[in-house]
Design a protein around this nucleic acid. Structure first.
Lengths: 218, 218
DNA sequence: TCATGTTTCCATCATTCGTTTGATTTGAGT
DNA sequence: ACTCAAATCAAACGAATGATGGAAACATGA
């Protein structure tokens, strides 16, 4: 089932590359709905019509970007999951490792832009699903989601499958909202009276990991 | 500090009432960014100009709606928190009760529209904060957030304050995204192979509660 | 050099949106 | 009945957006 979701696009073409690069940056920062084609093409130093020419429509561009991203994420996870299955360590540590793998595409080293973009894509899909986003989810994300649920059920046999699916969804929700924005972390500083000031990728990853391990450990 | 955030609005006026009612329904279902004033006023059976006349702008309307909602949520929680403090039950049960109070404005009985609306408001604030939303957060939500963190720190003295603030934020993120949309719950049915079909308010509340209690129990 | 297909560019279109204008209606006070 | 301010209405404005059509520029191979 490796059928391509989107139309054929010449990713060798300079214009296409620059458009995609600009789209990643801008979509990640502002959300794809808040970026007009004019602003995007200006930022990419490309004519306005280029997007419609190469991608058919703005929708076509966003789906191309998000599909590329989904593919990356799947690759990262599949690779690490294979190694994970062979690990012979104590259960709690293995759970932590598993969740760490889940977090990787969002909070891994050097995935600042891509991580935010990926979570924004999910957020958009959640709030306004389209045929395009549905297809990306089904093709790339559902299979690996089942892999995770399966792995979890082997680690935590006490929790039945329904329960694990629920919790998996909650985990996804926690992570994608946490990675899609910065606002709530400014709030951490406020709520702590200015004590907590380090709220970057590394701290988020650490704290999120503790939170989620607890949530599954029971 | 009971200063009103928004301008004075005649909530006795029929037109105002109908506009607010329509806004609640439509904003909850589609998100306030996806509802045009024309559609809204048509639904409320009111002239297009009514919104600008009574609320100053579309932004004014949304802030009025959200402020009203925030006030409700605060009242609900303050009342139940007072009763909670006096409860003499075992810690884990008390934790469960505390989180249940947190969930109340989102998933309480008869809060389907309001719960979704409230979570959508937060979501909007997270993705695109404005002066208006900041003020609502500061006035209504920050104080009670501190109450929750304080209550949590009494229940779980092992976790230090920073840690609790982080986890509180994660809880908020989980809940608001879980309550803001339906899409992820259709996905539960898909992932479970059609086994799990009941994903309504009651089930969400039950499962979310278990998840969050685990996450804080450690 | 020429022919052909591809890519880029400019100008413009149609639509949608929030907002404003200015005339008209409503209703309470005298 | 008259006044006047508040409320409502139809109509239109200006800005922004995604999308196009067709001319121009470019590249490629004969």
């Amino acid at each position: 089932m490796h059928r391509r979701v989107s139309r054929q696009i010449d990713f060798e073409n300079d214009t296409v590359v620059r458009v995609v690069a600009a789209a990643k940056q801008l979509f990640a920062e502002f959300g794809h709905e808040n970026v007009s084609l004019r602003r995007l093409t200006e930022c990419a130093d490309v004519n306005v019509a280029a997007v419609n020419y190469h991608f058919g429509s703005k929708q076509g561009l966003t789906e191309a970007v998000f599909e590329q991203l989904a593919e990356e994420a799947t690759t990262i996870r599949k690779t690490r999951l294979a190694a994970w299955a062979a690990m012979d360590i104590e259960p709690r540590e293995k759970l932590e490792e598993l969740i760490s793998i889940f977090l990787e595409p969002y909070l891994g080293e050097g995935r600042d832009v891509e991580g935010r973009l990926l979570s924004r894509f999910f957020l958009q899909h959640r709030l306004k699903p389209t045929d395009g986003t549905n297809q990306i989810i089904e093709t790339f994300h559902n299979p690996i989601a089942l892999d995770f649920v399966q792995a979890l059920s082997e680690l935590r046999p006490r929790l039945n499958r329904d329960e694990l699916i629920w919790r998996y969804i909650f985990m996804v929700n926690t992570v994608i909202l946490t990675c899609a924005e910065d606002t709530s972390f400014k709030r951490i500083t406020v709520l702590s009276g200015g004590e907590v000031t380090k709220t970057g990728r590394f701290e988020r990853r650490t704290e999120l990991l503790k939170f989620l391990v607890s949530a599954f450990w029971d």
